[in-house]
Design a protein around this nucleic acid. Structure first.
Lengths: 135, 135
DNA sequence: AATATTGTACTAGTAACAGTTACGAGTAGT
DNA sequence: ACTACTCGTAACTGTTACTAGTACAATATT
């Protein structure tokens, strides 16, 4: 599978947006990220649902940051994407007949849950203002 | 990405193999896992490198467990597969020019490392004999 | 009306594991 | 030697989720 790089990329963009009072168009942002405006709209669209940015159509439109950097955490962004499991690892089957296989799946699920909890805990401690140079 | 289910599946198989003194053929194992013999050979081949199982060709050949269940952990199996990062999440780029992006990547990498460490720690505590019914 | 901008449907590219077919390599029994 | 059995492996397809790109509709400003 290819990797999900949305979190790091959007964090980057939001920090840059905080420097400019007005709006940034998808095209501008796409140039920053070296990607396509449509990709930007998809990523930013998810953040809009969470109220972190807003968008306006038409001339002078674009994307606007709706919260200060210190009030946005990596966890906020991560959750906004409504990701599935962040792991490439999974149990073998949801409802195996064999008791041994069920045990194996249960044990693995527990390990995955613990790791996911630790991941989210770590993300929650990173606010976007921490990414500013010299902080 | 499709999910990697090798860990849970092979754990399951090794437990079953411990019940039978002799060897199990790829075909037998494949039937247990409801998959193809070639898939089994690929998975078991990785374990052979780690010394957990051995294989013999020819009639009466097949796969043999080389260690007792309590001496094989989920971490042993996981490592045998030499997986890449267990996460679907990744940083945006290895060597971004922008300082902010580098900060974002560094922060995310740290969170991923912590989660991965926790995952491996959890895996190391699971030995295969714990999967036996009534243990 | 003309222009700028987001919104979104559709298609193609990519990477890793799973699945399948085909065949080569080695071993045991006769 | 022959045959049958079994692993070893290459080559190809299927699956899935993110990335990328094209095309066009919807909307807002001037």
């Amino acid at each position: 599978m290819s990797k999900d790089t949305r979190l790091a990329r959007v964090a980057h963009v939001l920090v840059h947006m905080s420097f400019n009072e007005g709006t940034a168009t998808s095209e501008t942002i796409a140039a920053m990220l070296d990607t396509n405006p449509v990709v930007v709209r998809r990523i930013m669209g998810a953040l809009r649902e969470g109220g972190y940015v807003s968008s306006e159509r038409g001339p002078k439109g674009g994307w606007r940051l709706e919260r200060p950097l210190h009030k946005i955490t990596f966890l906020n962004i991560y959750k906004a994407f409504e990701p599935g499991s962040p792991f490439t690892i999974a149990t073998s089957d949801d409802h195996p007949k064999c008791v041994v296989e069920r045990s194996a799946n249960r044990a693995l699920s527990l390990a995955l849950s613990e790791a996911a909890a630790r991941f989210e805990q770590a993300l929650s401690k990173i606010t976007l203002d921490q990414l500013l140079p010299g902080s």
